[in-house]
Design a protein around this nucleic acid. Structure first.
Lengths: 204, 204
DNA sequence: CGATATATAGACCAAGTGGTCTTTAATTAC
DNA sequence: GTAATTAAAGACCACTTGGTCTATATATCG
């Protein structure tokens, strides 16, 4: 008979909504409209919470926004860790990574934009919490891409004179630029062709 | 004795402020804060106009914003027409063009960001007037850069397999990405090195 | 049951929003 | 001078903003 270490539940009515799901829904709104353009009623509608519940759970609009941003960043990094997995062939990984950006910057996805880029342009330099998140995200992205390029170089797959870290910085700027251009000129075919042309400059 | 074709002046007190200068000052505010975060008092302070004068001259906030955006775009295109002047050596032109971006994305300039990119992220897809301006700007930029690459190719300055239009698209995305990354990581030296590394992939 | 805890709905708040309008002063032409 | 035109100052407007708080219903415990 197993010893019951059952957690002592609190006495009253239990929480009936999923906090993470609410963050995700809020993220969707901030993502589509940006921070300033998102009003509280938008968030209440999306999360299906009452004003009281939302403020009790998250404090204020800004805190909820940071949670949404954290979620967005975590999702992006998880994705990259899969695409650029060290056990995978590095050039294939880079292709997958870039293909993801083509997908996210084409058509309706492109028009929706990128919460991170929008936040960088809207709030960076005026919000220290945001600054830290944006800066560390770009660093993390650069590190992962640079690592993939390093492995590709070790495998003799890189063109002469390509330096992994430089190439990674180029790619990071390029994909973030894709997100900007994708807001108004979202044609999948040219995006994919442009991505291919860029990668062709780096690989042997 | 010359015939006097003097313009009949209107009767009352003449306009005493420079409209274009007001647009330029307003542009500065939108540039630093973004559209939504710019409140009317900000614009009044910057333009040194009264509410009445501002509304009489520009109609409303949105119209003034579009005039500011037009001004920003015109300035950018003028700059490019100088940097990428056809009478100039094309590779030098491309270097000058990229050097301009390094300058504008480093340090304080970088932190200030870019009105066009910020507007694209904040308003594109929700404001048809903005959409048209952003889209046509990117097209114009791409065309000018592609032209420079074409001339470089004709002069035998391009590496094997570099296609001018593809290269131009890559550069456009790259420089817009520089603006994004420059919002939080504005180090001139690495930016310049990254730019050099990219251009080295294209030129012979 | 009663105690506890949480949810919702919505009233309420001060401050800010973009925008209008009136008053008054200034500057020109006639 | 007078008429005309414009500028600035600021009162004023309806509406929205983020945020608080109260009342009430609901759900879980002992």
């Amino acid at each position: 008979m197993r010893h019951q270490t059952a957690v002592q539940l609190p006495r009253g009515r239990p929480r009936s909504f999923d906090t993470e799901a609410a963050v995700e829904r809020a993220m969707g709104v901030f993502w589509s409209r940006g921070y300033h353009a998102t009003a509280l009623p938008d968030l209440l509608r999306a999360t299906k919470l009452s004003r009281g519940s939302l403020y009790a759970a998250f404090g204020d609009k800004h805190s909820l926004f940071l949670r949404a941003l954290d979620r967005y960043v975590a999702d992006a990094l998880t994705r990259m860790d899969i695409e650029l997995d060290p056990r995978r062939e590095p050039v294939d990984g880079l292709r997958a990574y870039l293909a993801g950006y083509v997908d996210r910057t084409s058509g309706a996805n492109g028009r929706r934009g990128c919460l991170l880029v929008a936040t960088a342009m809207e709030l960076a330099g005026r919000d220290a919490e945001v600054d830290r998140r944006i800066g560390s995200f770009f660093k993390a992205m650069e590190a992962r891409v640079a690592d993939a390029f390093s492995r590709a170089k070790a495998a003799g797959k890189l063109a002469d004179g390509v330096e992994p870290l430089s190439a990674a910085r180029i790619l990071v700027c390029f994909v973030e630029g894709l997100r900007v251009v994708g807001k108004t000129a979202p044609t999948r075919i040219t995006s994919q062709a442009t991505v291919d042309a860029l990668l062709d400059r780096f690989i042997r």
